[in-house]
Amino acid sequence: MLRDNGLFQALLWSVLTIGLYAAAKTLYHRKARWWLSPLLITPALLLLIAVAAKESYQEYIQGTHWLVALLAPATVSFAVPIYEQRSLLRRHWPLLVVGILTGSATAMGSAWMLSNLLGLDETVRLSLLPRSLSTPFAMIVSGDIGGVPSLTAVFVVITGVLGAALGEGLLTWLPLRSSLARGALLGMGAHGAGTAKAYQIDEEIGAIAGLVMVLVGLLNVLAAPLIAHLLPR
């Protein structure tokens, strides 16, 4: 009886999502292990519960899409870090532009090449292209170029969780001299998760990673209609 009530379900899933998220964050605060990252734990637990309750994505998202809508004001909020890092931007903009353009081209090119190599279909391929961007930007680009935004969100999360660890390893392997390159590596390759990792290493590298993450997201969103046009079908 209660299960058929849409409002009740919406409330239940919203409270459950927020509650699990808050619990995962508290847990991570106490014990910071990568496999305890809220980025991994929150969706994993929710998935388990949804599968156990035989809930479909349609039903779940109906009750929780208001949370996803808040990605838009979160996108607006990126104006604040851009403004706060304006001196960094003014000083290093040529290198940042180089990093963002190379990074974007490599991200799209590698996704395309690897998808072909592995025989992934068109939908998956298009949804994979924006995986390196921060979620709100990635979902916009995905929709623009013909991918599935929610599938892209899944790939973005995987990229973040794995990318933060991969990036840490690569930083010790690559003979990089500048913090600019170190920050660009993490911000370009692993968006928010990479930026958080970068801040753990060094304040300056973190600021660079954050700036790269925002700028690459903006560039891709603005270029998305053009990219959609250029993609071979």
Binding site: T17, I18, Y57, I61, T64, V68
Partner: peptide, 9 residues
């Protein structure tokens, strides 16, 4: 928190 629901896709 805002994109976790989308991941349930």
């Amino acid at each position: 928190l805002f994109f976790v629901p989308a991941v349930l896709a």
